[in-house]
């Protein structure tokens, strides 16, 4: 499980200092599906980046599955990140020069997974996301929905404990958006912890719990049962 205590994040330039996160304390249990909502600039993505070990907080504690990570270097965080967190972005962030198959394979390459196991797991993930038939295509040849399914396949292929999704349906039409949310729901049902930033109340409806942020603070938490 993951836990934050009084997270602070300041962005300072020479002229101005902006408080992005102002004392966030939250717990996420194993197998939970949490949605983070709030207006633009409230600190949602900043929080997600810190939770995803892409960034350090300015102050406060962050306990990632029993490890205190708030003061870790980028290198240490990268080690911890590898294989334990999957990311899904609004803009998909697929590598243009690689095919669908190769994009999905990439996390396993960095984990030095043996070739035959790699093949098996990539194919399983592609099968699962119903994108197998486009395995040899390049991202530009796919629809938005197909690209995001590829991105989700890439996020799950290493079997991470945690999936972080930053507005996963933001660039999709409603039909494809629905499909992506169903996939995330299914993954959660199978036990994967999911934290998702979203603007969409409909998408947030798939979560067990909604955390509302405003000006870098948690203002309300709603629970679905």
């Amino acid at each position: 499980m993951i836990q934050t205590i009084n997270l602070q994040k300041l962005f300072a330039t020479e002229e101005v200092e902006t408080t992005a996160l102002n004392g966030i304390s939250m717990d996420v249990k194993d197998g939970e599906f949490v949605a983070i909502m709030g207006p633009s600039g409230c600190g949602k993505s900043t929080l997600l980046n810190i939770l995803g070990l892409l960034d350090n907080p300015t102050d406060g504690e962050y306990n990632f599955y029993g490890t205190a990570v708030a003061r870790m270097t980028e290198r240490q965080r990268a080690q911890l990140r590898k294989g334990s967190i999957g990311f899904v972005f609004q803009s998909f962030n697929l590598i243009d020069e690689l095919t669908v198959y190769e994009n999905v394979e990439l996390p396993l390459l960095y984990l030095k997974t043996p070739a035959d196991e790699r093949k098996q797991r990539v194919e399983a993930a592609l099968e699962r996301m119903a994108i197998m038939h486009r395995r040899n295509h390049f991202p530009q040849q796919l629809s938005g929905g197909q690209q995001q399914r590829t991105a989700i396949a890439r996020a799950v292929v290493a079997k991470p404990k945690l999936i972080l999704a930053d507005e996963p349906t933001g660039n999709l039409d409603s039909k494809n958006g629905e499909e992506v949310m169903k996939l995330l729901g299914e993954l959660n049902d199978e036990g994967t912890t999911i934290i998702m930033v979203t603007h969409s109340p409909y998408d947030a409806g798939f979560a067990h719990r909604i955390v509302n942020l405003f000006d870098g603070k948690v203002v309300t938490e709603n629970f679905h049962v």
């Binding site: 990268a78 990140r81 590898k82 990311f87 962030n93 697929l94 590598i95 996390p107 960095y110």
Partner: peptide, 12 residues
């Protein structure tokens, strides 16, 4: 952008 993605996916 490619570097960023690779790093997120675990590249050192």
């Amino acid at each position: 952008a490619e570097v960023g993605v690779r790093k997120v996916l675990g590249a050192e």
